[in-house]
Amino acid sequence: MYSEKVMDHFRNPRNMGEMENPDGVGKVGNPVCGDMMELYIKVENDVITDVKFMTFGCGAAIATSSMVTELVKGKTLDEALKISNATVAEALDGLPPVKMHCSVLAEDALKGAIEDYRKRKVESKV
């Protein structure tokens, strides 16, 4: 039911693990089935230089977390914000319809991390 690409990212997740002193953290829970995703970013000059994730969830949740980290690495924050759950799903050669909500988790975690970074920046200036 999953594409080979999904299985590849599930078997060998990229950028999995915790990050020391991240610049932004996105933590989201999935209202649909109750899963969780955390995404951590390091940012220099508005560019995402490093990104990591940890996920408690299904194969699609893990694969989409992994894929979103690949997609955003090296991107500016504004570029990264343009990445939607559909982009992530497409990059994985599609997801079964019942699993599309898992990719929303990835998008939300990314947005959360960027928002967190921007909030911290504003606060540190105050």
Binding site: P13, M16, G17, K27, M36, E38, M54, T55, F56
Partner: peptide, 8 residues
């Protein structure tokens, strides 16, 4: 578990 934020 190594991927799980709950476990961490």
């Amino acid at each position: 578990r190594s991927m799980s934020p709950l476990y961490r």
